[in-house]
Amino acid sequence: MKAAVVTSFTTPLEIRDREVPEPGPGEVLVRLETCGLCHTDIHAAHGDWPVKPEPPFIPGHEGVGIVEKLGEGVINRALGERVAIPWLGYACGECRFCIDGRETLCEKQRNSGYSVDGAFAEYAVAAARFVVPVPDGVSSLDAAPLTCAGVTTYKALKVARIVPAESVAVFGIGGLGHLAVQYARLLGGSVIGVDVEDDKLDLARELGADHVVNAAKVDPVEAIRELGGADVAVVLAASPRVFEQAFSSLNRGGRLICVALPADQKMTVSIFETVLKGISIIGSIVGTRQDLAEVFALHAAGRTRIIAEPRRIEQVNDAIADVLSGKVLARLVFDYRT
């Protein structure tokens, strides 16, 4: 099979011919149709985070494809079923976080394309309990971004506990942000889209943002305050400075939802303002299998729209360069069917 492999953190990915893997007990073999390119894949390939994957490995955690083989003991999946391979590749199912519905906090979790090989390949094996069925009403091209960008922003907005008519500022309109705008609208929020690119702000308006702010042209904090301030600020841009701007834009009782993971991990916020204004700072990490099922159901019902551009896996390094340059409007998706 053809696969894009990280061989070191300082060299481009290599397209290699690898053996099709065999599913072990409790696993399935998936013939991939699509896989989205997430910024996390780029962080993985560059070794940006404190806990690093071990090269050589295959990135990719927005994989969608067909179950072709069942490992020993698998009874919950069927041959020919279309499934998604998300970031949460495995959780123990027994710790307090798994038991109370917070499986994404499991300390024994394995992550697709990070601690286990992922979906930048024509085939992948995955834990049968952690792949998620894709409904017929969702195309494989759309399902790929929903598998991470969708479920991550959906979960972030769920934990924000938005009350209808609250102001929601989305910092970073791209692969995640274009979906965050839509979920915030579905939850009844008045949405402010913040970015540094006019074409992305145009997209935010097209998808339902009530206001947009170009942070390259105006001070986003002042601009948001002139609009009445934000009750919720969701940060999807990988820059500590953006986190600080988002914090400063919040009203009393506001919630800062931290999603992006900058290589430079530290931000500075005022303890005084946090306490006196009753601000909550909340970290949100991807979503559960149930969250992803809900994301797929919403899309199948026509409630969301995906902006994605297909690429071939041979173009992986050019695709990464395009994402890092800011040229990509929303999401790039590797299509193995072309």
Score class of each variant (00 low, 15 high):
1 M>E: 12
10 T>W: 05
12 P>N: 13
24 G>E: 03
37 L>I: 15
44 A>C: 13
51 V>R: 14
60 G>N: 01
81 E>M: 02
92 C>Q: 02
98 C>H: 08
104 T>G: 08
106 C>E: 02
113 G>L: 12
116 V>T: 13
118 G>K: 04
118 G>C: 01
126 A>H: 03
143 A>S: 11
148 C>I: 07
149 A>I: 03
151 V>W: 08
161 R>C: 11
161 R>P: 00
169 A>R: 04
171 F>Q: 03
173 I>Y: 01
177 G>W: 05
178 H>V: 04
185 R>G: 00
187 L>R: 13
196 V>K: 09
203 L>H: 08
211 H>L: 11
213 V>T: 04
214 N>F: 12
221 V>H: 10
228 G>Q: 12
228 G>N: 14
229 G>A: 13
245 Q>R: 13
245 Q>F: 12
247 F>T: 00
260 A>L: 08
262 P>D: 05
262 P>A: 10
277 K>Y: 13
281 I>A: 05
282 I>L: 14
282 I>K: 07
290 Q>G: 13
292 L>D: 00
292 L>Q: 03
295 V>R: 05
296 F>E: 00
298 L>C: 05
299 H>N: 04
301 A>F: 04
311 R>Y: 13
313 I>V: 14
314 E>T: 14
315 Q>W: 07
322 D>N: 10
323 V>N: 11
331 R>G: 08
334 F>I: 06
